[in-house]
């Protein structure tokens, strides 16, 4: 398997069959400014939790670790919840800790593989203050269940933040990693635009408030 950096180079195609004036504009105006924009966006890292199965899950766990590592390589603050365990004191349960962590994150990448774990995501998805942060990836085999058909379908309808993957193809072929990075790239741009006070954006309610 190729490393993540080999799979997903940050590239930009440069047209060579443009008209002369388009070529001139591309080289002299567009590309330098686009480069600067990309640099600015890269300076806007996201805080990302990567939820999913533990080491006993084998290749799924390895994929989870690969996603975290690739996110870190791209400059994001990416963590497993278990890496942050113990940082919250006075919290009665593991679920409570995870909830607090989730509130502090920009995004939560959730990898689930079974009916049972889908049900766990279902529980979290019912919390309005964090459900919109979830990028949920579910084994296609688990999408027939009640939990998927319920809250997760609602999330998919509203935010399209629920993806299915095929096991093992999408794991082996790194499709899952690619999808995660594509979505994170988009949301990084969203955060950049948000933080730079996008003048063309209408004011939005703060997170957690009714949309």
């Amino acid at each position: 398997m190729a490393s993540a950096s080999q799979e997903m180079p940050v590239t930009m195609p440069q047209p060579v069959q443009l008209s002369p004036r388009a070529q001139a504009y591309f080289a002299q105006v567009f590309k330098p400014r686009y480069d600067a924009l990309q640099q600015a966006v890269k300076q806007t890292p996201l805080a990302i939790l990567v939820w999913g199965p533990g080491p006993s899950a084998g290749d799924l766990y390895m994929k989870r670790a690969q996603i975290r590592d690739e996110l870190r390589r791209r400059g994001h603050a990416a963590f497993f919840s278990e890496e942050l365990a113990g940082t919250a004191s006075g919290v009665p349960s593991q679920k409570g800790i995870e909830f607090l962590q989730a509130q502090a994150a920009d995004l939560i990448v959730v990898m689930q593989a079974s009916y049972g774990s889908v049900a766990e995501v279902h529980d979290f998805a019912s919390f309005r203050v964090i459900n919109f942060k979830m990028l949920v990836f579910i084994d296609q085999a688990a999408t027939d269940g009640y939990s998927y058909q319920g809250a997760l379908t609602e999330l998919k309808t509203l935010y399209n933040n629920v993806e299915t993957y095929k096991y093992p193809e999408d794991i082996v072929q790194c499709n899952l990693l690619r999808i995660v990075m594509s979505k994170v790239d988009v949301l990084q741009m969203v955060k950049y635009r948000d933080l730079t006070n996008a003048g063309s954006w209408a004011p939005l309610p703060p997170q957690g408030a009714p949309a």
Binding site: A47, A77, A105, D106, F132, V186, V190, D194, Q207
Partner: peptide, 17 residues
């Protein structure tokens, strides 16, 4: 640029824009 979490719902912002 801050790396703290956004005050806004990124997915909702994306949905709108």
């Amino acid at each position: 640029m801050s790396s703290s979490p956004s005050d806004h719902n990124l997915l909702e912002l994306y949905r709108q824009h």
